[in-house]
Write a protein that binds this DNA or RNA. Structure first.
Lengths: 370, 370
DNA sequence: CTGAAAGCGCTAACAC
DNA sequence: GTGTTAGCGCTTTCAG
């Protein structure tokens, strides 16, 4: 590969001159300019980016740390972020399933000018190193509570709240809530919103209306709210609480976990009546939809459903799924912009944005006849 | 940031020793080893990747050039490729909407050890530079005819063929074919398969059974086969050939193009009867599905449909869409593996793989009653 | 076993 | 306007 030296020799100038001309910096005569360009052209010279980077300390690259689940199911987040970043002439590297600790290393290696950290589990220790490093990064989602980091949040609480409220306004008061298995931050926020809305309307929250789906974020292929609902609606085979059989990762999660094959249990062992369902993920809602269909129930005539996430597929379902729309595109865009400003302008003002969520109203809802 | 020099000073050794120990190369005593590790630890030292790269000439990074349409709608290709690459300790950079010319530059800048080039339009001139550069790259899809490049192809012809044949076997002989607007290589291959299957069964191909949908790959949001079919089935408002109004990009494409708002025209202006539909993209099939529903026709009772691509959403449709499944995951995996072998083993044997396509049979097909 | 030194390709003072 | 030169942080001979 041709180097700057080759070009300099061919054009009979020094390498400094070549560098100046090719970067349009400093002064040079038109004559030398054209001869340098000619030489570069003829040699098919392309500057070595690595050398440039080492010298300038800038990589022109931004990393995006993301879980594979999000890459597979919500590519729009990535897409928007990459588009914005490319527009600003940054290259983008994807880091799959990195922990926050990995992020610290990545940043310290000088490999990136900045990092977009999407939905990563908090790790107080790593977080401190991250902040101390004074590098550029922006959190997208996640559960960081510190106020002194750049972060685009999503108001999951509000999402759970408006969805539940909407159902209540339609006359539903027995609303089944199906959450994923993972006890994630945002799952809990959605549940808080659900409970808050119930409470606000003076509806007593019923423990047997809160179920687990089989959805997990670690295994991208697996999901369903099918079993939970199937058991619930088959009167012959009443759902009942089952014993835990698998070991659990942490004590805290223990009480909220259950074995895959035994999903759909009711906390108090009794049957539950419901006219509407709210899930914490569209994929769970898909399972619910199928379970209801298989159980001979119609949507929305018999049961109403609201999902969460607005997967692109949800629009094309049998009855297009009404769902809570997470503003992921906006998140990617804003996150990328804030990061770039941080880098380019050394803008050190902390930005914390909480994005509102809206309901994508489609066809899985109906009024409750009273 | 701590450098190798800092570590060396702290451990009272030379930088050469630090390098050796941290890279586990050459010989060193256990004593020095532990003191170096200790110093590195205490300083929070992480080797600067850029410097390493400049020195070794290896970046440990692989680029994936992909169109945004694929990122958004078929993230599985990216996903699989990244997973394989990460396993082999490569970083992955995404380059959106690059042309083949861009690929040449990218590779020459020494920014990547290799490039995965997904579904990129051919450019003979750039292709020659690419080959001449003797860098590592693998084409994923696309229409490169030269035999002397690494390439994973997909047998679109076979896909069009088996889909059509399947419909014929079900008794259909008037099969509507709806292609996207872009006159892409693979669209043409699918059509060839369609025509071949018809011909093989002695069915006369009818020009008025070949339509255009509104689908374009450049605008990720837009798609539908809705208009085409809607016009076709509304007897009151016969579809007719319309004049071209927009300027066209190239002469070759001209005859096959039409304005968005005027899609769905029939080539010969006459009405067409059909009992089954084959489309070149699932999204077009979605539009068709809706058009049929809106026109009071049932699927599969009245019309059978086969899509193309197997979007993850297609499984969850009203009636799950029978579709031709492109083995994108396999493509990403194989492509990544071949590329890595090329780089690591300087394996210079050209690999050309043609992946077979299979039908994902779901619920949009029925037998034609004769 | 360890250290000195060359140099990867480039940029940016600094001289002229 | 142009050339000389000193590194950026690291790896890797080559001596010792």
């Amino acid at each position: 590969m041709a180097t700057i030296k080759d070009v300099a020799e061919k054009a009979c100038v020094s390498i400094a001159t070549v560098s100046r001309i090719l970067n349009k910096k400093g002064k040079y005569s038109e004559e030398t300019e054209s001869s340098v360009h000619k030489a570069a052209e003829e040699l098919g010279y392309t500057p070595n980016l690595t050398a440039k980077r080492l010298k300038t300390g800038l990589t022109g690259t931004i990393g995006i740390a993301i879980k594979e689940y999000f890459l597979l199911h919500y590519p729009v987040l990535l897409h928007t972020a990459i588009k914005v970043l490319n527009q600003q002439n940054y290259s983008v590297e994807i880091i799959l399933n990195a922990t926050m600790k990995d992020c610290v290393n990545l940043l310290n290696r000088g490999q990136f000018d900045g990092l977009l950290i999407a939905f990563i589990d908090n790790d107080e220790h790593a977080l401190r190193s991250l902040i101390k490093s004074r590098r550029n990064f922006v959190f997208l989602g996640g559960s960081i509570e510190r106020e002194d980091v750049n972060m685009i949040e999503i108001d999951y609480f509000q999402g759970g709240y408006i969805a539940t409220q909407h159902l209540i306004n339609l006359g539903h008061d027995n609303i089944l809530f199906i959450e994923d298995n993972e006890n994630l931050f945002f799952t809990q926020e959605i549940k808080r919103g659900y409970l808050f809305a119930l409470d606000e309307s003076g509806i007593q929250y019923k423990e047997n209306l809160i179920l687990y789906g089989d959805h997990t974020y670690s295994d991208p292929g697996e999901f369903t709210g099918y079993n939970s609902v199937r058991r619930l609606i088959s009167k012959r085979q009443p759902a009942k609480q089952v014993a835990f059989t698998k070991p659990f990762r942490s004590l805290e999660v223990k009480a909220k976990r259950h074995n895959h094959q035994q999903s759909g249990w009711l906390r108090n062992g009794r049957e539950a009546d419901f006219s509407a369902v709210l899930t914490t993920d569209d994929k769970i809602a898909y399972g619910v939809l199928k379970a209801l269909k298989d159980g001979g129930l119609r949507v929305p005539a018999d049961k109403s459903i609201i999902g969460f996430g607005n997967l692109s597929s949800s629009e094309y379902l049998s009855t297009p799924l009404t769902t809570v729309e997470i503003p992921l595109s906006q998140m990617g865009e804003l996150g990328a912009e804030i990061l770039v400003n941080n880098i380019k302008r050394r803008d050190s003002i902390i930005k914390r944005v909480k994005l509102k969520i809206r309901l994508a109203q489609r066809e899985t809802l109906s009024k409750r006849l009273t």
